[in-house]
């Protein structure tokens, strides 16, 4: 049997069929009811705000990740100092000493 001819005939048969575009009575009321039930009209502004905040949050997270990666790969001098207290003292006291010398 010629399967290709069968396929062509069946496809042509489907093409001849005009699809039914009738709509059930007052179907738009059903849709409007479900939209109202989901409170979608009022939620548009909220959704837009939410989308904006999410975009901002994603940008912030990406920036923080880049900075984190940068500080891990290029630690700099501060990573050498183990004791934060000593580092703070070294940074502040010389300035205070200089101020006292001026007086």
């Amino acid at each position: 049997m010629n399967i290709d001819l069968l396929r062509q005939k069946l496809t042509h048969a489907a093409r001849l069929r005009t699809e039914d575009d009738s709509v059930p009575y007052a179907f738009e009321q059903r849709i409007m009811g479900s939209v109202r039930a989901g409170n979608l009209f009022r939620s548009h502004a909220r959704v837009e705000w939410g989308a904006g905040l999410w975009r901002a949050a994603i940008s912030c997270a990406a920036f923080a990740a880049i900075l984190g990666a940068f500080s891990l790969w290029f630690p700099g001098e501060s990573a050498v100092v183990e004791d934060f207290g000593v580092a703070l003292e070294n940074a502040i006291l010389p300035t205070a000493d200089e101020a006292l010398e001026v007086l």
């Binding site: 005939k9 069946l10 496809t11 042509h12 048969a13 489907a14 001849l16 069929r17």
Partner: peptide
Amino acid sequence: AGDDEDAARSLV
């Protein structure tokens, strides 16, 4: 075999 028949349409 006609391709405008209901049987062909339901078969496809």
